[in-house]
Design a protein around this nucleic acid. Structure first.
Lengths: 187, 187
DNA sequence: TAAAAAACATACAAGTCTGTCTGATTTTTA
DNA sequence: TAAAAATCAGACAGACTTGTATGTTTTTTA
């Protein structure tokens, strides 16, 4: 079908940017179409409602998050290094995103009565992050299955916690501290 | 001055309830005055703007949170028990508040460009929580000053992390797991 | 090049939002 | 009991919200 105009792309890019920077409720359709420089009817041709834009936002955020992580991981094989890379990635993102925190948690907290489609995408994302942690641990020979399960939960909890702290204090220090703790846990 | 009518009290009670249940942006002045059963002009006599209601919300939430914690602590002196009570309190609150999470983090995430007055109150609250943790650790003789500092950060990070997890999964399991981890850390 | 699809501008509906104002009524204070 | 303060109901301003509808112009497809 169409391909050249990039209208859909501009809608998605600007929606995602504004939803993240300002929050979902604080961002109006009119601002989106203005900054994307498209007509309102074009937006509603691609997305039937603002809620559909929200779903798109979650899908894009998920995709970009994992792409960014695996770009930083590169072809490194050492699971210990890769575990620490997760925290390096969190630190790098915190700076780039000006300490506004995880898009998924942000949304879950902004909309306490979130529709189920969106809530499910958030849970899926978090589950995938936990899988990454679990995967690395499984590749460390010294760690047995019981300890792996235990450490997965603990490291994931630390991962979430340092993200919050970093956002509230607008500082990477909590992430760096947590990275060191995790480093000791898997040493 | 006035004392009997309880108008201000009804404004504050309903504002706090609705801000927490629905979020700040999703709650309108009109809903507040309707559920508080007062006139709009009465509201603006007590609070000059919605932002002032937000500040009140933070002050009240802070007060109630610590009152609830110290009620659960009672006159228990054992610092190890009191540390675990912090997590029992988090679990109890999670259920009571239907997994909507910490009011302060919620607000910081809902309004990424929060006014400085409010942001400062949030940081103060989190600092006070950390002080509680630090205080208990300082009362455990086996823990030296260095270890105390280290554990304060770690337990606080775990505290924040398990709160997020609990909210996203609508389950107390992450809190219970974390309580056990903390129990081992200070055993 | 002619038909189909996409994007355009713009107005509009119907509702919401915060905050102000007027003037009447009730409550408190002195 | 008289003056002062608080609360009331309700209209209003002015801007904003999401989404629809109309008709035109541009782009793509066949």
């Amino acid at each position: 079908m169409k391909k050249a105009s990039g209208v859909r792309e501009r809608i998605v890019d600007n929606s995602c940017r504004l939803f993240y920077e300002q929050g979902y409720l604080a961002t109006g359709i009119n601002q989106i179409i203005e900054e994307a420089d498209i007509a309102k009817s074009s937006l509603y041709q691609h997305f039937k409602s603002k809620e559909d834009l929200l779903i798109e936002y979650l899908l894009v955020s998920n995709k970009e998050w994992f792409e960014g992580l695996y770009k930083l991981v590169g072809d490194e094989q050492d699971p210990k290094k890769n575990m620490l890379t997760l925290f390096d990635y969190r630190k790098q993102s915190a700076i780039k995103k000006q300490y506004k925190g995880c898009a998924f948690v942000r949304l879950a907290y902004e909309l306490p009565n979130l529709e189920e489609r969106a809530a499910e995408l958030i849970r899926q994302y978090k589950s995938a992050v936990k899988s990454f942690i679990s995967k690395q641990l499984s590749l460390i020979p010294q760690i047995n299955a019981d300890r792996q399960k235990e450490l997965t939960e603990m490291i994931y909890t630390l991962y979430e916690g340092c993200g919050i702290e970093s956002s509230l204090l607008k500082s990477t220090a909590p992430i760096e501290r947590t990275r060191k703790i995790v480093s000791n846990l898997i040493a």
